[in-house]
Structures are given as C-alpha cells and as structure tokens.
Design a protein around this nucleic acid. Structure first.
Length: 722
DNA sequence: CCAATAAGTGTTTTT
DNA sequence: CACTTATTGG
C-alpha cells in the first residue's frame, strides 16, 4: 500500500516524515503539526521502510501525550498493540521489569512518589539526628531528584560540585540504603538505574538497540541529562532516531530538563539533519505575532518564526479587574456572552493559571453563573488518600519489604497497632532484612501481638487473592477483607467511598483494555499516575499552564497576569527562571486558536490575606496595537454595588472557524464526526471503504481492497464520502 | 492506642 | 487559607 503522504502534509512535514538517512532533529513550533509528523512517520517506517511495528519505540513525557499519540497512530494504522508508545518513565519501568534478571536488578520493585520520598527523607534525617527545621526534607528530595537526573549516585566521589550542602551526601546515602533494602524505586531511579545497568550489561544494551530499531522522542526539549543518555544508549552509534521538540516550549527546567540537549544533539549525532516546522495551523496571526514578541525577549533561542495562512484575526484583550473575584466574573461574563452571541460551546473555552490555588475562585463563580467546568489534573486520582491506601495494600502484597507502604496502611482502618507495636515489628523483621510477614521472627509485642499476626494473615490473604482472582474481583475482595470500605461507610466518608468505586471501574477498564494483564501492571500504571482521563463533555477547562501544553482551545483566558504570580515570585532573581516563566507564557498564548484574553486583578486573596498586585511584565512585551485594554471597576448604583467593565466590546468579526472546513486536512483536528454504521467513508491513508460496525467509538471499516481494520473514531482521519 | 482539639506553618509548576 | 503536627484526655 502506498500512502499519498504529500496530500496530507506540507513540504516541511513531508520532508521530516520521509527523511531517514541520518539522525533527525525536528524543531516543531507550536501548532505546526508535530504529532501529525510523528504519527505519519511511524506509518511510513512500517509501510515503506520495512520496519516491524515491534521495532519502533515512541517516547513521550506525559501520559496525556502518550495516549493521544497511541490513539492517533491507531487512527492511522489501525490497532497495533505491538508498537511501544510509552512515557519515559513507563518505558524504563517496563524494561527494568522485563529485563531485570539479565540486568542484575530486582524486577519487582515498588514505585514511590514524591510524597513518599518526603516521609522517607524525614526518617533518614531522624536517624542522622538532624532536626527537620533546619534540614527540610523537601529540599533534600529535590536535591536527590536533581542528582539522579544527572546520573549522580550517592557513591559519587565528587558530589561537591553538585551541592555544597554539608550533609547532602549522608542524607542521599542513607536514603539510598533504605530504598535498596526495601526494593523501592523513585521516578529518578527508573531512568538512572536503567541507564547504569545498561552500562554494566552491554549485551542487554545491544539487544535493546537491535530490538528498537527506530526511536522517536517527543518533547525533546524536556529531557534531562539522564533521559538523554538513555536515548543515546539505545540509539548510538546507528543513530536511527528522530527527536522532536521546541526550545521555546521548555518549561520543566525546575525538574532537571535541559534545553541544551537540543543544542548538543548535532554534536552527539554527527551528520544529523535539522528540519524546522514554522507554519502554524492553529492560531490567527495576531496571536502568533503577540506571542512571538514575548518569546523574542529570551536570549539564546534557536529562533523560529511562526506564521499562518489563516489571516490576522482579532486583537488580544487585556482586562484588569479590582479583585480576583472581578477577574473570575469578567471571565464568566465573557464566556456567557460568547456562548449566547457567537455560537461557542463551553468546551471551546479554557482558563489557564500559574498555580492550582487559582482555580477555586473560578470554580465558585462558574457554579454561581451556571457555567459547566472541569478542573483538569489538579488533584490527580492516584494522589487521593484512599486511592493511595488501596494502592499501598497492593504494593505491600507484591513487595513485602516496602516499609513505606506498610507504615501507611498497617493501622488503616485502625487495628490497634500504634507506634510501639509497629516498632517491635520493624525491629524483628525489616530491620534484619526479612520481609515483614516472615512469621519466624515475631517474638515481642506482648499483648498486642495478636493484632500483628492478624495483620500478617490479612496480607497473606491479599496476596493469595491477587494470585487467584481476576484483577477486578481481587480489588473488590481487598475492599472487604481489609475492612477499608466498611470503615469509610461507618465514618460517613461518602466521597472517598465513591472514589473507591471509581478505582474499581478503572480496574475493570484496565482489565478489558489489556486482556491478560495482571494487577501488577495496573499498580505500575497507577504509580506512574496514568489513569485514563474521563470524558470532559461540554465544559470549560480550568487548567494550569504546565498542563496546558500540547492542548488547544478556540478561546483562551490566561488568568493572574500579575507580577509575583506570573512570573511567579519564587522564580524571581535568576534570569534562567524568568526565561522559563516567559516560555510558559508563550506556551499559554500559543494554545489559543481564535481569541486570547489576558486577565489580572489589582488585589487578590492569597494565602489568607489580600495583597496588592502590579501587572505582569509580560503584558508590556505584547505590542500595544495588538492589545485592547479594559478595566473592571465597582460602581455604586441605587445603593448597590455592581461590577462594570470599561472599554468597548470587541466587534464580532464572525470569522470562519478554523476547523469548519479543513478540506486539506492538514491541521489534523476534528475527525470522524457524525459517522454512522454502513456509511461510505474515505480514510486519509487507506482510501474508501464502508463502516461495517461501530460501537464505543471504535469503527470497523471494510476497505474497497478487502482489508478490514478497526479504528478509534475520535482520532481517525476519515470523513463521509462525497 | 486513638480521637479530638489546638497550635503552627508555608506556601509553583510534574513524571 | 488549608494542611500538618503536637498535645491532651479518654
């Protein structure tokens, strides 16, 4: 089958898809069809270059990006479960689990998150007799994570170049000792341990090089040193690799990302080819010009200039209100007006903010104004107490050395096991290097001993249930056997009870989407915060700027455009940090397709007190002739206070909507709408066919050449035949 | 051991 | 403000 790639890609995109005679660096500007290039490239490699699906590895950063890429590849190629499309961390975790034996690494580790790290560091500090006031656990968690990003182990002789903290090395060593003895991995370990293990076992490294013949890396500007080294280990010297990124969208420096990796790429991969994608299919020109001006204040950029053929579009609007409430009110009013007068749906809007705490005022205001909304990703599912608790039961059953999990749930629900009894258990088991449930060793504990033996029995039962029952049944049994569900009911914790229901649903979903998978795999997914996002429906999205990357919306509000919030005051002094804030601003602005509103408040409630705020410096960087300024003020009217906004409303140009008729299909948005069973359709790649069945958004299509394939309709580039 | 209450504290972004 | 930790009394 020959795909007519040139029909669906512009010249640069096409070049990037077809080029495979040396390593490839694609500098993809915002909205330039980056994901489209990656997915078509995968299709090209398989269809034209003789790669087996299983020989391709696609690496992304977030679970969201990962599932989108999976879906889009699925839309293009049908279901191909054997293509590895995973996040960095899940790739590493999976490889460690599969290859653990050959790598000399225990494959059944548990994964701990930052909160767990914090409590663990707390214990280390206690053991070292350091008081947690002067030596803050959080600081050491951060330092340890950054060290791991740079592949620095605690054995490193020269950590002085990394941190001058006098006790850092001791804390790191103490932390590492516990991690190893309890068989725990943090996020940094997943990458670092794998990389180090591949260095020690070059046979495995060579095996993997051969297995993953072509590697694609998305959001390359967000890779840290360790991740880049890992990529090099997997792809050098052959260099069958394609990395895609945008130095202007690097916003994860605070967790070790190095934009420099893009700059070094051509040094490490000699003869590498660079292709820039600068045509933007998302936004009107006014939005692009304004955001280009802002990002233009950053020095040392590789330099791209985005352009669009879509036309100038409307000016940006900046509204400064008297308070945070006024800001929310202005946003709500504008949304209501645009829905009423210009035919927008609620799902066309997004409100971006710098800190999660900013969402509250929007939530309450939107509720009052009857605007449906969804807060995206603020309290991640797995971070909820009850979810982590159940997860800890599973973790502990799988890894009896996992003291972090043990401490968490041993008395939840209350089992009469307090500090003293716990101490006895530790002294007799884990401290001696035994799993906690080794019954040989349980001597002390006096009258509380029964409580402990009961608990040990409980955990053995849980392990047994996990081995015997299907994942959903096992989880349900654990709810009951632990007494956890009953406890929640008795305590009247309805919401938590609901969440356990959701967790159960997620397990069912998991079991049906990957048949044969075990609870271990689910635990791993959950630990890496990979829970499927539920359908958002027709709602306004409230979302942090960081989470907004990769998304797009017809109308965007950027809230809290105030000095101290954005740029955030903690990013203040260092120029590096300010530049990252500016890139964050750029990312936010370039999410907008049609209308972009920037809002601020003169004063707002922050941490319990009201503070005065000046406008963000980024506002001054937007050309004046592209910005309409408004002011929200309180007016006394008939003794009542009302809110008014100065400045004229923008004239409604009623421009054609970008995705109204995207006949060239190059923007890759919005596909498969309104398709029914037995419709004749044209698939962008495979040509004409008929929909032979359709359920749950999965369409089976019988193509005219007799081929039958299944597609996820939401992302499949098809339309009705005309 | 545990639940309830009081005092205290530290505030970004996320795999 | 919201969340964590320390203290108290049962």
């Amino acid at each position: 089958m020959t795909i007519s790639y040139d029909k669906y890609l512009n010249d640069k995109q096409l070049e990037a898809v077809l080029y495979d005679s040396s390593p490839l660096l694609v500098l993809a500007g915002a909205g330039s069809g980056k994901t489209r290039v990656i997915t078509y490239k995968i299709a090209y490699l398989i269809d034209e270059r003789g790669y087996e699906p299983g020989q391709i590895l696609g690496v992304t950063f977030t679970n969201k990006a990962c599932s989108e890429m999976k879906d889009r590849v699925c839309g293009l190629l049908g279901e191909r479960f054997d293509i590895w499309i995973r996040t960095f961390h899940s790739t590493a975790a999976r490889l460690l689990r599969i290859m653990g034996k050959r790598l000399g690494v225990s494959g059944d580790f548990s994964i701990i998150d930052q909160k767990d790290q914090n409590t663990l560091i707390g214990r280390v500090l206690q053991e070292l007799n350091l008081d947690t006031d002067t030596y803050q656990p959080g600081k050491y968690v951060h330092l340890i994570n950054r060290a791991k990003d740079r592949l620095l182990t605690p054995e490193e002789t020269d950590l002085s170049g990394f941190s001058h903290d006098p006790v850092f090395q001791d804390v790191y060593a103490g932390y590492d000792k516990i991690m190893r003895s309890e068989n725990l991995f943090d996020f940094g370990d997943l990458i670092m341990q794998l990389s180090k293990a591949l260095d020690r076992n070059t046979d495995v490294r060579d095996y993997l090089r051969n297995r993953f013949r072509y590697v694609l890396v998305d959001e390359f500007q967000d890779t840290n040193h360790a991740q880049y080294v890992l990529i090099k280990q997997l792809t050098l010297p052959e260099g069958t690799v394609c990395v895609v990124g945008d130095d202007d969208q690097s916003i994860y420096g605070f967790r070790g990302a190095r934009v420099e990796n893009i700059l070094h790429f051509s040094d490490d991969y000699r003869g590498c080819k660079t292709i820039k994608l600068e045509e933007n299919y998302r936004s009107y020109q006014a939005i692009l010009t304004a955001s280009s001006k802002v990002i233009g204040n950053n020095p040392g950029r590789l330099g791209k200039t985005l352009f669009t053929k879509r036309g100038e579009g409307e000016k940006l609007v900046y509204c400064r209100s008297h308070s945070d409430y006024g800001e929310a009110r202005y946003t709500a009013d504008t949304i209501t007006r645009l829905v009423r007068d210009e035919g927008y749906k609620f799902s066309d809007f997004a409100v971006f903010y710098r800190m999660n705490a900013q969402s509250r005022i929007f939530e309450s205001t939107f509720t009052r104004m009857n605007i449906p909304y969804t807060v995206v990703g603020s309290l991640r599912f797995y971070e909820r107490e009850e979810i982590k608790d159940i997860l800890s039961y599973l973790r502990l059953a799988l890894n009896p050395m996992d003291e972090v999990a043990l401490r968490r749930i041993i008395n939840k629900p209350p089992r009469g096991i307090g500090k003293k009894t716990l101490q006895v258990l530790f002294e007799e088991t884990i401290a001696r290097g035994h799993p906690f449930h080794d019954p040989r060793d349980l001597q002390g504990a006096g009258s509380r001993r029964k409580n402990l033996t009961d608990f040990i029995e409980l955990m053995i039962d849980i392990k047994d249930m996990m081995d015997r029952l299907s994942p959903p049944d096992a989880v349900k049994s654990i709810y009951r056997r632990t007494g956890y569900l009953e406890w929640l009911i008795n305590e009247g914790k309805d919401e938590k009870k609901e969440n356990l229901g959701e967790l159960y649903n997620a397990v069912i979903e998991f079991a049906s989407s990957s048949p044969g998978a075990e609870l271990v795999d689910f635990v791993e997914d959950l630990s890496l915060s990979g829970v499927q996002e539920f359908e958002l429906g027709n709602t306004v999205h409230l979302i942090t700027l960081h989470n907004a990357k990769g998304l797009e919306f017809p109308v965007v509000f950027m809230a809290g455009m105030e000095d101290g919030i954005f740029p955030h005051y903690l990013a203040g002094e260092r120029q590096r940090d300010l530049q990252e804030e500016r890139r964050l601003c750029y990312v936010g602005m370039t999410r907008a397709m049609e209308k972009l509103y920037l809002t601020a408040a003169r004063q707002r409630m922050l941490y319990g007190r009201t503070v005065e705020r000046e406008p963000s410096i980024f506002l001054e960087e937007i050309p004046k002739d592209l910005l309409i300024k408004k002011e929200g003020v309180i007016r006394e009217q008939n003794g009542r206070q009302t809110l008014r906004f100065t400045g004229r409303r923008m004239p409604s140009f009623n421009l054609s909507r970008p995705d109204a008729d995207d006949s060239k299909g190059k923007s890759g948005r919005k596909t498969g709408a309104g398709i029914k069973e037995s419709d004749r359709v044209v698939h962008e790649v495979f040509g004409s066919g008929i929909v032979s069945s359709l359920n749950n958004d999965i369409a089976e299509i019988r193509f005219d050449d007799g081929k039958v394939m299944k597609f996820m309709l939401k992302y499949t580039p098809i339309r009705k035949e005309t």
